[in-house]
Write a protein that binds this DNA or RNA. Structure first.
Lengths: 234, 234
DNA sequence: ACAAAAGTGTTCCAGGTACACCCATGG
DNA sequence: CCATGGGTGTACCTGGAACACTTTTGT
């Protein structure tokens, strides 16, 4: 804010998105990557990103990047972290680069990838992810931690599940993200039901053998008073 | 990353610090503010901030701002959030401004304010804080939430308490930040002691009337294995 | 002797864990 | 009638909340 003794840096600001989705059928946590075509790191996979344009907010840039790669109706998005270029790699000419990363969770069912010949885009299972360009592996790891926390303390899952879901869908969702090392199914059931935020539509759904499952939906009104209370979903 | 159809924004990047400290004697949570002298918001108090210089990392800029205002040996610092200028207030000429905020906690005992005639700097009790310049009140609120969370899930308190402290010091510290509406003293005691991360130096200290208190110190070795386990301090 | 501060112990209860078990459907 | 997945119930245990009580100092 003060007149400085040494010259100010001029920045170009980029936005990089960590876009997660969960394939509940296959019980896999997915991340969206694009294949770079240009120098540097040509041929490497990287997080979808863009540079911020004049008059465009950071968040708008994040949404634009997302919209260029997939068509999706239901998603959750929040800012993740701002990464400096490491001092070593920093090329001060002509302008310095700053990456503001965003974290998104999208509904898998209606996420439709926009295939472009020049920039292939693809879901990767998180545990079968290649080395990424730049410091994107670091950003991805950071995003994964955030995802786990979000899931435990806030109802993001419901932004991204189908409107009507079974308790088993919900359980699959959680275990895909958190890695199967959490509460067993029946305890998960009772905890969720006791919260009183799931509405029992009397409908049943049959999937192969076994007893039909009840369809539930998330009850936003019932959840509202619990917002930012310290409640735990797993 | 792609050649864009509309021109890129050029940024100047600033760093704004939310610097907290705790006066355990008076049981007050403090935040460091500076009084602005220039337009805009002349006369208002604001968070200490600076513009990022060429070749200077974000974090380095945060440390520099801190060092310009106070001399302190023990502190904790981490990035908080990156704030866009709201679309309304955004003046596109000549360059757009981006604020990366940092969050710091410093040891009160050895924090020595650097008084400069041109820019007064002062501790404010958080609950007696004036309206701040720009959107700094919003940033401050965000920082306070982060502080509360950090305190509950990580041992930042020990970065900032004196090396030797009584359990009551620790309790005062927590209640100054979290606002006295948490566990009572004796439960706090037993929980902390049971964690096994406090080392009982056999020394006692007498402060006025009452039974002498045991001095403890934080045992980093004992804590290491518990790192990033989900453990709760309050 | 009494107040003040440190420190210990006890009782009660909510909520998590780990199971065993019952229910409804397809093959 | 059995395998499969959905759903319920129970017994056990940990850990927090509240609070009574003891210990050691100053005045």
């Amino acid at each position: 804010m003060s007149a400085s003794s040494s010259p100010l840096a001029e920045f170009v600001v980029g936005v990089d998105n960590v876009i997660f989705s969960v394939d509940t059928d296959q019980n896999r946590l997915l991340v969206l990557l694009v294949r770079r075509q240009q120098f540097p790191f040509a041929g490497y996979w990287s997080l979808p990103g863009t540079l911020v344009r004049q008059g465009e907010s950071l968040e708008a840039a994040a949404y634009r990047t997302l919209a260029e790669k997939i068509r999706v109706n239901n998603l959750y998005l929040e800012q993740l972290y701002t990464f400096d270029e490491p001092a070593g790699e920093r090329r001060e000419t002509p302008r310095r680069y700053l990456s503001v990363s965003y974290f998104a969770l999208v509904r898998f069912a209606d996420a439709e990838l926009i295939a472009a010949a020049e920039s292939p885009v693809q879901w990767f299972a998180l545990n079968a992810c290649p080395d990424l360009a730049f410091d994107h592996s670091k950003i991805l790891a950071y995003g994964h931690r955030r995802l786990c926390n979000k899931l435990e303390y806030s109802p993001v899952a419901f932004d991204v599940l189908p409107e009507y879901f079974t308790l088993n869908d919900l359980y699959q969702f959680y275990s895909a993200v958190l890695g199967a090392n959490f509460a067993d199914y029946s305890n998960f059931r009772s905890r969720l039901l006791k919260l009183g935020i799931l509405q029992d539509t009397q409908q049943k759904v049959i999937r192969g053998a076994g007893r039909p499952a009840t369809l539930y939906r998330f009850n936003r009104e019932a959840f509202a008073p619990l917002k930012d209370k310290p409640l735990v979903f797993v």
